[in-house]
Computed example of a mutant assay.
Amino acid sequence: MRVVDGTAWDPTRYLDFGDHRSRPFHDLLARVGATAPRRVVDLGCGPGHLTGLLSHRWPDAEVSALDSSAEMVAAARERGVTVERADVVDWTPAPDTDVVITNAVLQWVPEHPRLLPAWLAALPSGAWFALQVPGNFGAPSHALVRELLAEPRWAGRVRPRGEKAVPEPDEYADLLADAGAEVDVWETTYQHRLTGDDPVLSWITSTALRPVRDALDADEYAAFRAELAPRLRAAYPVRADGSTWFPFRRIFAVART
């Protein structure tokens, strides 16, 4: 996971919704058909809680990972993951890299559409490159943050990501196909059933609100959250049983060189 504009990442907070956040990784991995890869790379591994699945799937492969967050790298190493601290924009595949998985990372890398063809070109013939990114930047969870940041009290304090933060599925399909790969692209909207007080606010606290928290002091950040909370509650109402539905669109692409 990339560090953006000095953003610090909290591995514990990120794992608060670990089951929900992990499901897309499983769905992505299921579409990778590699049988005996030599090297498998988890590109942007976060706290490393999913990297072990790659070793389980391909026990004879050399499995390695990288992440640009010192906190995430430390958490991954505590799990026994072989991980390097590095920015994905500086990464180049080793000649024996047969599988690359990058899960919920590239949305933090605005230039990644430019990087994808170069990465595919550097991979050996028959290699697999699999990516997953959130496709919900137009959803209320993000739109309401942008709206609040545009109000006079907060204007100019934080530069939010726009609705067009990642390409659409057809754009990924064209990009990867034009690079000469066999392509499998799809999208899924998960209906996450959340519980607890202000669960959507809690969810985005570990992701979308990280740049906001880092740009404001503690009192300002608390005030921002207090203004945002009722707007999110209105957009994502609590059901009679106390749970909250949180629709979350994700985009997947698998390319074989």
Rank of each mutant, 00 (worst) to 15 (best):
P152T: 11
E220S: 11
I204Q: 03
E151Y: 04
H142A: 07
P140C: 07
G162Y: 10
P237E: 10
E182T: 13
T195W: 07
P230S: 10
A173R: 15
G156P: 05
R157D: 03
D214N: 14
E182V: 13
G156V: 13
T188E: 14
R249Q: 11
P237G: 08
F246E: 02
P167E: 06
A222N: 06
Y172T: 01
W186A: 04
D174Q: 11
P169L: 12
R210V: 15
D197Q: 14
F224R: 01
P211V: 07
R153M: 12
Q191I: 04
L232G: 02
E147G: 14
P169A: 12
I204N: 02
D170Y: 10
E220R: 03
P199M: 06
S243P: 06
A165N: 06
T188H: 13
G196Q: 12
A223Q: 12
A179C: 08
S206H: 07
F246Q: 04
P247A: 11
L194G: 03
Y190H: 11
D214C: 06
R153I: 09
R239Y: 04
H192L: 09
T188Q: 11
D219N: 09
P169Q: 11
V212H: 01
I204V: 14
L194Q: 06
L209N: 04
R231W: 06
L216H: 03
R233Q: 14
